[in-house]
Nucleic acid binder design. Sequence first.
DNA 1: ATCCAGGCTACAA
DNA 2: TTGTAGCATGGA
Length: 286
Amino acid sequence: MSTLVTASDIVSLPVSGPLSLEDTFFCGQSFRWCRQPDGRYAGIIGSTVVSLWMEGSTLYAERLSLDEQPLDTLCDDYLDLHTDYEGLHALCQCDELLRRSVDFAGGIRILRQQPWEALCTFILSQNNNIKRITGLVERLCENFGEPVSCKDGSIWYTFPTAQRLAELTPEQLAPVRCGFRAKYVLDAAQKVASGEISLQAIYHLPTPEAMETLMQIQGVGPKVAQCALLFGWYKLDCLPRDVWIGRAMDRFFPDGFPAQVLPIAGVAQQYLFHYVRAHPEICDKK
DNA sequence: ATCCAGGCTACAA
DNA sequence: TTGTAGCATGGA
């Protein structure tokens, strides 16, 4: 039996508003994308490997793996194409620095990543830099993810499930070189795999309760929880405070973001994060 | 070599 | 309650 309809292997998706694949994939929200020699971006969404590129205001996606997951809905959802980013940008115009951040980084979209992947990734991110986080995630997937074959013969790996990681001992996790974060990843995996923490239920919790839930995990504090909720559950009001954002907030927003920005603080934060990392001197003391 | 990185835990005081 | 040393690793 074969299906009558074969899923298309290249799709074009109209994009309204700005979209920078470069900034979106390398602004520190996801760590699994890479630039290809032809200037396109390759990555894995779930168990589908795709290559993405822009032509004008059209996003193209080509399937590299052998599955038949519908590409259009997959990419439309993952890249958050249905959200009105120009509307979000308008909310940031009330402040000079946020306006400059939007001008600089407004092509960033908040990716709709899987909750477990985001949670696990940001546990690994603590007291760490983006380059090394990328390496940790890569080794985690290669060691414990499921292989995904591609048309060109290459093999990618899915992000390992909580169930898979929950079986591991710290010694088995050693090849990933997580350092002190290894026991945190295992605790998270065990609590999720056992059902003690329901990832699904967190979708329905307001941010404060969602924070409390995630912070039951060893190694998950306020910052990791906010990142996980923003990038894994799409809770846009989350405002993770890392070293960079901390410096910028102290210097420019000692009383917090303007009120109208608060419901989308996570989006504004991401523009600001990208901006201050590229312009560290703006946070220098007077 | 020292410092730092999308921080948190454990323990002082 | 608030403050901070220590933590693994590796690049700058």
